[in-house]
Design a protein around this nucleic acid. Sequence first.
DNA 1: TTAAAAAGTTAGATAAACCTAACAAATATA
DNA 2: TATATTTGTTAGGTTTATCTAACTTTTTAA
Lengths: 218, 218
Amino acid sequence: MVSQTEENYLKALFHLTCESEHKIEAGTNELAVYLEVKPATVNDMLKKLKEKKFVSYEKYGKITLTKKGKSIAVEIVRKHRLWETFLYETMNFTWDEVHEVAEQLEHIKSQKLVEQLEKFLGFPEIDPHGDPIPNAEGEIKKIVRKSLFEISIGAVCKLVSVKDGSVAFLQYVGKLGMGLNCKIKVISRQEFDGSMEIEVNSQRFTVSQKFANNLFVV
Amino acid sequence: MVSQTEENYLKALFHLTCESEHKIEAGTNELAVYLEVKPATVNDMLKKLKEKKFVSYEKYGKITLTKKGKSIAVEIVRKHRLWETFLYETMNFTWDEVHEVAEQLEHIKSQKLVEQLEKFLGFPEIDPHGDPIPNAEGEIKKIVRKSLFEISIGAVCKLVSVKDGSVAFLQYVGKLGMGLNCKIKVISRQEFDGSMEIEVNSQRFTVSQKFANNLFVV
DNA sequence: TTAAAAAGTTAGATAAACCTAACAAATATA
DNA sequence: TATATTTGTTAGGTTTATCTAACTTTTTAA
Ligand SMILES: [Mn+2]
Ligand SMILES: [Mn+2]
Ligand SMILES: [Mn+2]
Ligand SMILES: [Mn+2]
């Protein structure tokens, strides 16, 4: 049996390693920050996860998921994103509301429910934030994408996903009239602080570098 | 905050008292049997529930839900039955499969989700077992019904709900070709052990008194 | 190359939900 | 009514997931 807490640790490790480019391992403190617990707590849990062969790590070393650990993590991510899609498509939730409830729903144990849910939703490939939904075999479609900040002046691109999933950020994006698949034209960029002027739906906004870094486009 | 465990205790008390006729209070051992824990465990929890004003009880006395405790319990029962309906109607679950998963789903905390789910399902009034679904105000439609055992010979009645919700019982009922709203004709009854001969879909079966007591009809 | 900073670990504590074993009160029955 | 049975309580213990405070190892940088 895998506890809810263990599932959350494995999912966090997946996000911090497998899912991020340029990084294949994580540290104790890093995980602690991510999960909002103290390093000592992570350390205890790591011993248990190692015992269960879900992670490989040695004292003072770095942490990576084993094949077994990764497959559990992917299943949780799959459930999380399917539930987010369900909440968004079927239950009239907005894209900033889905995450919190999906955090609970992802721990529901029922193989059949996940399969039926996926079927009911028509085998969606991305969730409401543009993130890929792993299939029943745990395979994840790789999405080629750049951050909005990397787009050159004058170019027009399409929003395909968001990096930050916080309620504040998502509501901000929505308030600017932006959503997945919306067209964004880059008007200008400030050398000084990296802020950019963009045009969306014939409206112009100035956004920070931090903001632009959190939007993925093609 | 009400923990998942506390919710289960309140729901159990609701089933054992408010929802059952002829009984308005419960005892420690009774609750322990129902929840499959030891009496000592119930005793500890009772102190906490009393502290939180969810139950009223004195040492060596009987337990009843307070208004506050009952309203939490009804909300859990509401969620349980809405989820069972969802699993049955939308996710292609059979009536013997829904309960186990609904036991998990009933603890999901999201007012909006419950309301949207109810709306999506078309404000159902009964769950897949024929039990009434409380509305958003916590009101429960009283269903007038008798057990099949009380029906007189020769009479025809309609199955409206099942008492026992165990997988074995529900599968047995289903295997006999019976389901909610099916017509049952009482052919004969044995004085000796109370077993009955019944006719369903032009087929005759002999069923035990225990079996007949677990079917509610009108 | 060594001292300071950062990262990671350990020991010991707490709270929730459970247990066993022993005990006490209430109820049933001889 | 006295005793046996049932019902309920208490004390003390376990496990899981968390914490703080002190300590150790590794890394960075003067
Ligand atoms: Mn999410
Ligand atoms: Mn998402
Ligand atoms: Mn049920
Ligand atoms: Mn039911």
